[in-house]
Computed example of a mutant assay.
Amino acid sequence: MTPSRSNRQKAFGLIGLLLLTFAAPAVSTFIPMTGEWYDSLQKPSWNPPSWVFGPVWGLLYTLMAVAAWLVWLRTSVTRPLVPYFVQLVLNAVWTPVFFAAHRVDLALGVIVALWIMILVTMLRFFSVRAAAGWLFVPYLLWVSFATALNFTIWRLNS
């Protein structure tokens, strides 16, 4: 049964989910993404330039929040949103593990767990509202690419 929400509640729900979703990467703003350590790593030729990551992640976080909002609009319980919040935590954890702790190996474990939780979230979202599931596809594709990149950097620098 779809809960009845006022337009004001819907708007606050969207704003809240956008703020919460963008809070995950906010943790990373205090961690330098470049520096001697990162610059010294061997990277594959297909490693994107640094400027690509900001716009891509900005778009992905927006799509994620809208997907979660679409699910929230349709459900009276938050159970379908649990994996969403778990993947947000994993998303927030990856950057400090990789860039601050310089643990490319542990970051690989985190990103694999993140990929699994994105898939679980996407499947749950599809079961509630197809559009929400589809909004997660670019995120899964990007994290698949990021996982391959993390793995390759680990292999090149082991």
Rank of each mutant, 00 (worst) to 15 (best):
residue 1 M to D: 11
residue 4 S to E: 15
residue 5 R to Q: 11
residue 7 N to I: 12
residue 15 I to E: 03
residue 17 L to Q: 08
residue 17 L to G: 06
residue 18 L to A: 09
residue 20 L to P: 06
residue 21 T to D: 04
residue 22 F to P: 08
residue 25 P to E: 02
residue 28 S to Y: 09
residue 33 M to S: 15
residue 35 G to H: 07
residue 36 E to Q: 12
residue 38 Y to D: 12
residue 40 S to K: 04
residue 41 L to V: 00
residue 43 K to Q: 07
residue 44 P to L: 06
residue 46 W to L: 01
residue 47 N to K: 10
residue 47 N to M: 13
residue 49 P to N: 08
residue 51 W to Y: 15
residue 51 W to H: 10
residue 53 F to K: 11
residue 55 P to G: 05
residue 61 Y to H: 10
residue 62 T to Y: 02
residue 62 T to C: 06
residue 63 L to K: 02
residue 63 L to Q: 03
residue 64 M to Q: 00
residue 66 V to Y: 06
residue 71 V to H: 01
residue 73 L to Y: 04
residue 74 R to I: 08
residue 74 R to A: 12
residue 75 T to W: 02
residue 78 T to G: 13
residue 80 P to T: 02
residue 80 P to Y: 02
residue 86 V to L: 08
residue 87 Q to H: 13
residue 87 Q to C: 07
residue 88 L to R: 05
residue 88 L to K: 07
residue 88 L to A: 00
residue 94 W to P: 12
residue 95 T to R: 01
residue 95 T to C: 05
residue 99 F to H: 02
residue 99 F to I: 02
residue 101 A to S: 11
residue 101 A to K: 14
residue 101 A to Q: 15
residue 102 H to Q: 13
residue 102 H to Y: 04
residue 102 H to M: 01
residue 104 V to W: 01
residue 106 L to N: 07
residue 108 L to Q: 09
residue 110 V to G: 02
residue 112 V to A: 12
residue 113 A to Y: 05
residue 115 W to C: 03
residue 116 I to P: 01
residue 117 M to S: 11
residue 117 M to N: 08
residue 117 M to Y: 06
residue 118 I to E: 06
residue 121 T to K: 07
residue 122 M to K: 00
residue 123 L to D: 03
residue 123 L to P: 03
residue 123 L to S: 02
residue 126 F to R: 06
residue 128 V to T: 12
residue 129 R to A: 03
residue 129 R to C: 05
residue 129 R to I: 10
residue 134 W to Q: 01
residue 137 V to D: 07
residue 137 V to A: 12
residue 138 P to W: 04
residue 140 L to T: 02
residue 143 V to K: 02
residue 145 F to R: 13
residue 146 A to P: 11
residue 154 W to V: 00
